[in-house]
Structures are given as C-alpha cells and as structure tokens.
C-alpha cells in the first residue's frame, strides 16, 4: 500500500503542518508502512474473536470528587494563535 506525495501534502495541509521536502519523503514512507500494516492485519480472520475495546483487564478507575487548581488563564490560552479576554478566538463557524 503506497500513498502519493500529493496525499502527504494534502494531509499536511489539513493538519496545518508545514513540512520540508525531507519530512514529506519520510512521512510518505512511514504512512505507507502504517497502511501496509493495517492491510496485513485486515486479512486475518477474526470472525470468532470478541471485539476488544481495552487491552488491559482493568475496570472502575475513578477519582474522588475534589477540586484541584486550574491553569492561570494566560497559561490556558498561551498556545492559541488568537485569544481575546481569556477566550480562544476562532474563525466564524456559522
């Protein structure tokens, strides 16, 4: 399963990633490997295997209902390209 350079560029654009030529080559190879891996796995007969949602046999992990400090608001919005009055600013949605 091989994906094209155009596919890599398209996905990078959707994810707003700016990749160098070398990075694009690397991701082309890696993504192709991932898809190839999935192709091989999908060939296995799983008709009598229960679907697995969790790989570890563990249940009921919970915490007590206790308030813990939140982030200072400047920290919360620090990585946002735009913010205003502590709110994240995004382009118009509707």
């Amino acid at each position: 399963m091989v994906i094209s350079m155009e596919d890599v560029e398209h996905v990078a654009k959707l994810a707003r990633l700016y990749l160098t030529k070398e990075e694009k080559k690397m991701f082309k190879r890696q993504l192709s490997d991932v898809l190839e891996h999935a192709r091989i796995i999908s060939g296995i007969d799983t008709s009598d295997v229960e679907p697995t949602s969790h790989a570890i046999p563990l249940a009921n992990v919970a915490r007590e209902d206790e308030v813990r400090p939140s982030l200072p608001v400047e920290e919360a919005v620090r990585n946002a390209p735009w913010s205003e009055g502590g709110a994240f600013m995004v382009p118009k949605i509707i």
Binding site: D65, E66, V67, R68, S70, L71, V73, V77, A87, F88
Partner: peptide, 24 residues
C-alpha cells in the same frame, strides 16, 4: 452538581471569567 468536572479537577461552579476553570 459535582464539585469538580467529569474527568479532571477543575471546578464546576457557574460563571467565572472565560477559561479560568480549565486545565490540560
């Protein structure tokens, strides 16, 4: 009406300045 949020310890109190009750 719990004191903290469903999956983190941020307060659930109504109101407050934007994003003052947030965490990673």
């Amino acid at each position: 009406s719990t004191k903290s949020k469903m999956f983190c310890g941020c307060s659930t109190e109504f109101g407050g300045e934007p994003n003052t009750r947030t965490c990673p």
